[in-house]
Design a protein around this nucleic acid. Structure first.
Length: 113
DNA sequence: ACGTTGACCTATA
DNA sequence: GTATAGGCCAACG
């Protein structure tokens, strides 16, 4: 089998694509799902590169531990991320997702790993 | 090639 | 409760 080059990144994209609409997850949760709970920074990097990666990666569904839209500034516009999330039925105020715990989608739990 | 940066998280003081 | 430190690894200058 071919050795994947961007294992970490590819895995991150895989998980992010599995996030259901109207749900959100965190960098740490993805990192933990990949087996590297302290590599959450790489998840953020992967998101940054996701724009250049082929395929669609709903990076707007990935927020930080506080449910804050930290990466909104990396989208086409500073309000694109909020618009996308609101479009999926989420409520956001001051770059913070309301009832974040209710919308939180943990791959480790949901994917039963 | 080395040093710094980066959409973070956890732990310790 | 805020502040500081450590860790992860890829990309950029």
């Amino acid at each position: 089998m071919m050795n994947e080059k961007g294992t970490f990144f590819e895995k991150v994209y895989e998980v992010v694509r599995k996030i259901p609409s109207g749900r959100v997850t965190t960098y740490g949760a993805i990192a933990r799902y990949l087996g590297s709970p302290q590599s959450s920074r790489m998840v953020g990097w992967a998101m940054n590169q996701s724009q250049y990666a082929k395929g669609y990666v709903p990076a707007h569904r990935v927020v930080n531990r506080n449910g804050m839209l930290t990466g909104k500034h990396h989208f086409e516009g500073p309000d694109v991320m909020r618009e996308l999330l609101e479009n999926e039925g989420l409520e956001i105020e001051d770059d913070l997702i309301k009832r974040f715990l209710e919308y939180f989608w943990d791959p480790v739990k949901e994917l039963n790993l």
